[in-house]
Design a protein around this nucleic acid. Sequence first.
DNA 1: CCGATGCCTTGATTTCGGTCAAAGCCCCCA
DNA 2: TGGGGGCTTTGACCGAAATCAAGGCATCGG
Lengths: 243, 243
Amino acid sequence: MMTVRQDVHSAGIPVLCQSCEARHRGVCGALDSDQLVGLAKTSSRHKIEPGVELIGDAETVDSYSNVLSGVVKLTKSLSDGRQQIVGLQFAPDFLGRPFKAESAINAEAATNVSLCSFPKTAIERMMKESPELEHRLLRQTLNELDEAREWMVTLGRKTASEKVASFLLMIARNIDPTADPAARSATFDLPLTRADIADFLGLTIETVSRQLTRLRTEGVIRIDNNRHVTVDSLARLEQRSGA
Amino acid sequence: MMTVRQDVHSAGIPVLCQSCEARHRGVCGALDSDQLVGLAKTSSRHKIEPGVELIGDAETVDSYSNVLSGVVKLTKSLSDGRQQIVGLQFAPDFLGRPFKAESAINAEAATNVSLCSFPKTAIERMMKESPELEHRLLRQTLNELDEAREWMVTLGRKTASEKVASFLLMIARNIDPTADPAARSATFDLPLTRADIADFLGLTIETVSRQLTRLRTEGVIRIDNNRHVTVDSLARLEQRSGA
DNA sequence: CCGATGCCTTGATTTCGGTCAAAGCCCCCA
DNA sequence: TGGGGGCTTTGACCGAAATCAAGGCATCGG
């Protein structure tokens, strides 16, 4: 039987936060136990089903969240309905756009998601008094910017098959349980439907499907149940990704 | 004859900084006069010709810069030479990637550019002691992230003609001298060659040229000398941009 | 004045990915 | 057990943008 994770500094830390990944690797790591206590009072945990929008809960209006598990997609749409996924958030990412009343971005659960949410005011007050919190946010934002720019290259300059390979590679690196970055192989469940993948890569469903089939028939990947993917050689997949 | 701009707080501010836009609207606005004096000692101004890379001067290795005038393009390349412009920096943007030894991004002058550069160490020291500086950086980074995501939509989901219209609109909003955001018309010099525009939009030179021709023959824009553009109705251009 | 060079435009043809259409598969539930 | 709905695959065809190929138009230096 497992006990709750203990560490030297857990004295006074809210029970909810003690084993929370956001405290270890996310923005809450910037806070001391007093601040955590204060924040925990106003925080609430939610579970969200795939397809549910996180309005009023995340990207917009009045609250911020940490992603505790699952995958959240950030999307933008054109007036005629064309849609583009502009980011994927994994645990323990921070969700929300500081310093702006409303962003033109929608957030939606791609899988089952669990969140830890806070009122905007609580975070913003805390940001004023804790430079370390802003520092963490800056780091996360810079990383997201790097990722966004990486995807601009993929969207603008890669072929359909390179796009799909790049996507699989990114997912493998983000959610393969064997978290070793130097792993030679990977296996994981796709957190997105074909339609989502298409919206992420600027393609159609059909093209995504055809390229997956091609990677499959050429032995680069295996797919079971439409969602479960095995990559025997990440290096081989990387070669297909255009790099 | 004009005098150097004076304001109430200019006492003790380095001469170089007094009329500097980066101090008014850029990150240097976060600094007090003592800090400016300290930073100014290690800063240097450069002028850079179009096409010159800013290695060792901006995005990489050992220094940060403010863009004082002109346009800097940030590019990423695939191993086979395909290139994508992932960002354009205008005055008074801050140039450089904090907290990372080297970024996979290249910076290159698109036009004549003037910069004010600092050693990385000086900025990083100042960031530690001035939360306000980090705050400004966070804000700029969040804005760049918003812009990058906006372009992801353009790259992934817009047609060639919508892309070109979107590009013209973005340039008009950034560098038209009549800085009124509610302006109905605009006139400006394109800071990029056709090749650069193509690399920005994920198109070929020929397609960019054809779409510009189309916008011209349809009366949406006028072009003189290949570079000088007049837009009589920004609203009309916006309709072409897919929104 | 002339030719060279670097951009840019225009035209003809090809191709990759989109569109339209039909089936297949899987899971749920009656 | 069987039917329905959602997601995915596959095939046939089409079209927007890429590619290939010429040619135009400035600017620069001889």
